[in-house]
Design a protein around this nucleic acid. Sequence first.
DNA 1: CCTTTTTATTGAACTTTTTCACAAATTGAT
DNA 2: ATCAATTTGTGAAAAAGTTCAATAAAAAGG
Lengths: 228, 228
Amino acid sequence: MNNKFRIPKATAKRLPLYYRYLLLLNDEGKDKVSSTELAEAVQVDSASIRRDFSYFGALGKRGYGYDVKNLLSFFKKILNQDTLTNVALIGVGNLGHALLNYNFKRSNNIRISCAFDINPEITGKITQGVPVYSMDEMKQQIADQQIRIAILTVPQATDQKTADEMIEAGIKGIMNFTPIRLSAPNGVRIQNVDLATELQTLIYFLDSDEMIKKQLEERKKAMNNTNK
Amino acid sequence: MNNKFRIPKATAKRLPLYYRYLLLLNDEGKDKVSSTELAEAVQVDSASIRRDFSYFGALGKRGYGYDVKNLLSFFKKILNQDTLTNVALIGVGNLGHALLNYNFKRSNNIRISCAFDINPEITGKITQGVPVYSMDEMKQQIADQQIRIAILTVPQATDQKTADEMIEAGIKGIMNFTPIRLSAPNGVRIQNVDLATELQTLIYFLDSDEMIKKQLEERKKAMNNTNK
DNA sequence: CCTTTTTATTGAACTTTTTCACAAATTGAT
DNA sequence: ATCAATTTGTGAAAAAGTTCAATAAAAAGG
C-alpha cells in the first residue's frame, strides 16, 4: 500500500476553485463538463486539470467528460464540505468586520462562530450574529468550542504572543492577515494573506512588463536602422 | 545581450517580503544582515534568499552578509518605492471600506486615490480622505488620473463588465477580490485574492495532516502487534 | 455496424523552483 | 601575518509542477 494520499500542494490549492465552479454548474443544471470547458472558466490549463483530477483516480469518462454531480459530491467529501467548519476571528477591526460580513457559509460551509477583541466597546456584544468576546476569554472559548481554525486580523505588535496563545488553546490552522511571519510548532499550519505584498508584486510585474515592452521596441528600432 | 532582466516569478513574489523586513531592520538601526538571519524572519530558506538576490548581481559581501542600507535602496528602486503609486478602489462595501482604512502608504508607498461605488448614499462624499465617485465617472477619472492599478471589491455579478470598462480606461493591473476569474487582454495582469478559497485550502491541509498522522499511528500499532 | 469525433488517462519531456554543498572572499582574533 | 570562523555566490542535483502527445474508451453520426 503506497501513499496514494499525498496530493501535490499545487493541486490542493486549486481544489476549492474547481469546487466552486462545479457548484455553479450544478446550480445551472449542467450535467457534464469537459476539462477544456473547466479550463476556460477557472483559467487553469486543461492538462493540469486532468492531471489534478487523476490524482484522485479516474473520475471522468472518455469521450464524455466529467459528470458534474459525481465530481461535486466527490470533492464535497474531499474538501470536508459536508460538515460545517467553525472558525474563530481574532481582531475585530476594519478587516475583521469585513470578514464578519463575508458570507463564507454560502459556498464553503464555513462559519465564523466567535470573535475576539481588546476593545471594550465591542466586546460582550453580538455583531453580525457573532458573539465578540474579550481576549481574556479566548483560550477558554476556543478550547470549549473545539475550534481548530482561526483568522488573525489584529493590528500587529502582539501577534506572535496572540498566536502562541491560540495554539495553546488548540488552534491548528491560522489564516494570518498580519504582516508578521508567525512561527508555529510542527502540526500547525499558517496561511499568510498579505495584501500589501500582493499589491506590490502586482506593481512589480506591471513595471517589468512595461520595461520588456520598451526594450523590444528599442530593439526593433535599432534593427530598422541597421537595415537602412 | 541576453535577458538578464527576467526574474523568476517565485523570486518576484518574495521581493516585497524582503523589502518590508529590510525596512524594519533599518528602523532598528541594524547595519548588516546575513541570509540566515533574514531566512528566519521571513521564513524562506537561506539558500533561496541568496539565490533570489543573486539574480540582481552580487549584492552581498562574503564573510560579512548584506549591507542593510545598500540592499534597501536597491530594492527600493527595483520595487518602484521611490514614487507614490496611486490605485483605484472599485466597490466600497465592507471589504472596500477595510481597504480604505488599510495603510498601504506606510511601508509600501501605495495610496488609494479614488474610489467608486453604485450606492448613492456614499458617492459624492469623501471617505477616509478618499473621494468616492459614482460608477459612471469611473472611466473618466481613471483616464484623467492615469491610474494603472485597481482593486476590485464589487459584490459579484457585473464584475467582468466592470473589469472590461476599467481596462478600457487604461487599467493595467487588477487585484481581484471577487470569486470570478476575470478574463483580460494581453498586457493586463490580474492578481486574484480569494479569501474563501484560501480558507478552504487551509482546512484541506489540516484534514490531510490529521489523516496522515492517524495512518502513521495505525501503522505503528500494527508493527507493535507483529513484533509481539 | 462502422466511422468519425470527442475526450479522459497517462508516460514522458520539459520547465521552474528549491536545495545541497563547496570554493572563494572577507573578517576578526591572536 | 596567519589562521579560524563566517558567509556569499553558484554549479549541480533534486524536487515539484506543467505541458505534450500517444493511446484508449466512449459517444455521435451515418
